[in-house]
Write a protein that binds this DNA or RNA. Structure first.
Lengths: 344, 344
DNA sequence: ATTAGTTGCGCAATCGGTTGCGCAAACGAT
DNA sequence: ATCGTTTGCGCAACCGATTGCGCAACTAAT
């Protein structure tokens, strides 16, 4: 009869044994004779016994559940990250519960609380864009649930993080362009309320400053909504006829920028060079393939999950800021300009 | 002290009440006086009481957990689908557990079994490419857990499905091209062991047959690995100099095909028209934008989740095959050829 | 034959809540 | 003053599994 589960008691009754004996038999406990174990296993099979994990884990302090809270499922980075996390989580016999905060701090708070209700063994969280402090994570600390922040974080000394060195990668991007003679480039960045965006921009600016290359504010595009991009890009072209390179800080910005360039007939890299920070997928199906600083979502996910599971299993509250390095993948969307950069 | 949770008993002790009273107070049970409720709530707050869902749901037959098993996280469709499912699931106070079968039937079986251990209230499953029968889903039926198959399925009379009419959409695609004078087109399809691929191909072929347009086997590309696509496409071009249109059955195939066309300098749509079945995102950032039959992952996810939750909450085992209609989105990657199609 | 040790299993408590039922005190009605 | 009703709360069972401990029965050693 559907809905009614076979329990240990049922098996016990069938065999004239006690529940503990059946439990131990199935757990291959040494106290139980081989013959009994065999009989128990047979009946368990025949009756389609299914263990009840809620009952089992009621005594145990762990649940083998890991929760992931993401602000949204964008197209490129997050799915790859989830896949990476999931791989490690499954390999270690945990299950992954995925929540989406829709970039709302209210939702995020609710979800964090929910994680405690579920007794998650650990929580991974990509902060929402509205999140400006980490008070809501204290609940987790109180009950001893380890948390790791990844990708999008804010400044914190109380939580472990896995990120890339956003400022450094912004700097590398700019240097790469400058070294190749691009003294007038446009950088396309995301919402500046997000640390990830502001840091990448900061690095981008710093590189210009260090190299003595001027960078006007109009060379920096801060994109909150993707549909602003078209207009802002046109303005940049209009204001900077000497523009020779464009840098995009995410895959989303890359594909839209690429599309806009194609639409206006701008040839890459003959007229404008294109450089991105990317997961690596989009650059290979855009034409021409796009040179990028690779930041693999899958790798971030895997490493973060490993780290979290380490915290869980060693019952550690070690704090660590893991910085993942990006690798440069040159695919020919950036030219080297022969004329020397003009210095002031 | 971290790890030690505050329980109802603690609150009860603190107030000199019994555990049931505290439980009822927090549940706003009418038997409890307003004054007591207030005191209980205060103490619960002060002590940072966190309910233990595993204990709560030990008695209840439900868990408010919905499991999703996907073969892989591709880039386009699946993430959008997950986002859609998650939206509905969260709105209805369920949680979504995501598993990945890596296209392995062994994993899939393991995961389905795991769903029963977790006492999931319902299971959504996108079948792996190795799955050829549904015997492993019987366990779920036995314990009364509703299942809905979505997107990639196989023939079944015992399970509900949510799909598009794959054969029909293949047919529509071909007809669209034929009506516009494309009598020599190439169709790019996925692994033929998957029903989704074989049906779309079947429809594509049928349309040609119905219209009396010949379709050589060399006009049909069956792609198992994406890296075969380049070579096969070149062969098709070589063999069919009169080729005027290309159809791709998924987003992945679309972006790679588009990339290959760009690389070989084929102009779209001047030289070759391009038509796709797509989630709608890729077509808008490729250049030119790609005309497609839209099949929204988000919508599929939402509708499926709604349906499943209906089954759960009405304790129904109704069977239903939901067919989601695609909508035609014309974005200019298909030209109309002036010369009439040559009939035989 | 008595003792010591091993083998195989059951009793009962426990995890943290929920729920049916009972019961005392307070209340109103006659 | 008596009876019936309502109010507010506690007792104990229960969900399904795990586990420390105890206890027979059997074996082996002296």
């Amino acid at each position: 009869m559907p809905g009614t589960r076979v329990t240990l008691k049922d098996i016990a009754k069938r065999l004239g044994l006690s529940m503990p004996t059946v439990s131990r038999a199935l757990a291959d406990h040494p106290d139980i004779s081989a013959a009994t174990k065999e009989r128990v296993r047979e009946v368990a099979q025949a009756l389609h016994y299914i263990p009840n994990y809620r009952a089992r884990y009621l005594r145990a302090k762990h649940s083998r559940l890991i929760a992931l809270i993401v602000p949204e499922m964008n197209t490129f980075f997050v799915p790859a990250m989830i896949a990476g996390i999931n791989r490690v989580v499954q390999q270690n016999d945990y299950s992954l519960i995925v929540f989406q905060s829709d970039n709302s701090i209210v939702q995020e708070r609710r979800l964090v609380e929910y994680c405690t209700h579920l007794s998650a063994d650990g929580v991974l969280i990509v902060l929402s864009s509205e999140t400006s402090d980490l008070a809501h994570l204290e609940t987790l600390r109180e009950v001893g649930i380890p948390v790791v922040l990844l990708d999008k974080t804010i400044e914190t000394t109380r939580h472990s993080t896995v990120t890339i060195d956003d400022q450094e990668v912004g700097r590398e991007a700019a240097n790469y362009l400058i070294e190749r003679g691009h003294t007038r480039s446009v950088g396309i960045f995301g919402d500046q309320r997000q640390r990830i965006s502001s840091l990448r921009l900061k690095g981008f600016k710093r590189a210009h400053a260090e190299q003595g290359i001027p960078l006007a504010e109009s060379q920096v595009l801060r994109i909150t909504m993707l549909d602003e991009l078209g207009e802002q890009l046109e303005q940049a072209f209009a204001r900077h006829p000497d523009l020779t390179a464009i840098f995009t800080m995410t895959d989303e910005l890359l594909v839209f920028t690429h599309h806009l360039l194609m639409r206006r007939g701008t040839r890459i890299p003959e007229e404008v060079s294109l450089l991105a920070i990317s997961d690596g997928l989009a650059p290979t199906f855009l034409h021409p393939n796009v040179t990028h600083l690779r930041h693999s979502g899958g790798e971030v996910g895997e490493r973060t999950a490993h780290f979290l599971i380490g915290l869980i299993e060693h019952n550690s509250d070690a704090m660590m800021d893991v910085r993942i390095r990006t690798t440069l993948v040159e695919l020919g969307s950036v030219t080297t300009r022969t004329q020397r950069p003009a210095r002031r």
